[in-house]
């Protein structure tokens, strides 16, 4: 039990070598170029957006504006949205207030902690619906 066998059933070095993110200008949505993690405090969710490639950071700062995020989260977020680009680590931290249906304690959502809000962000198209993405 203490020293189980190593297995490559979950991944192989080849798989890792063969997968690579798309370049921002060839990608359709954030999922193609970044990963993300959501955290919760009260009725506030924060989502950090992490580009797979550091070169994508500046482009993402252009694309992932507070306005775009507000539109994309329409119906899920009631309050203000703040955005903190962090150049040193090339991440963008988004703070979504009123994002958890009143908070974990009393929320009626299936995802009370808002874990999946990070995935909703990744589903955001890189270009705005009106084609005015940049």
């Amino acid at each position: 039990m203490d020293e189980p066998e190593h297995t490559d059933r979950y991944w192989t070095p080849e798989e890792v070598r063969d997968w690579e993110p798309k370049a921002v200008d060839e990608a359709d949505r954030l999922y193609d170029v970044a990963h993300a993690r959501a955290g919760d405090k009260g009725d506030v969710s924060n989502i950090v957006l992490v580009p797979f490639e550091d070169e994508a950071f500046e482009d993402l700062v252009e694309v992932v504006t507070v306005e775009r995020v507000r539109d994309h989260f329409d119906g899920l977020v009631e309050g203000e949205i703040e955005r903190y680009p962090v150049p040193g680590t090339n991440c963008i931290n988004l703070v979504l207030r009123g994002a958890l249906d009143g908070g974990v304690a009393s929320s009626l959502r299936l995802d009370r902690y808002g874990k999946s809000l990070s995935r909703h962000l990744l589903a955001m198209p890189l270009e705005a619906a009106d084609g005015d993405g940049d």
Binding site: H35, K41, E82, V86, G88, N93
Partner: peptide, 30 residues
């Protein structure tokens, strides 16, 4: 990759993470 996701977990303003001990600024972390 794993550490960058965790550095900002449950963080609001990354330059002002409040704890009982300090107002921590995470923006300079490398």
């Amino acid at each position: 990759a794993t550490l960058r996701e965790q550095l900002f977990y449950e963080i609001h303003d990354p330059s002002a993470k409040l704890t009982p001990d300090v107002t921590a600024d995470l923006t300079g972390v490398r």
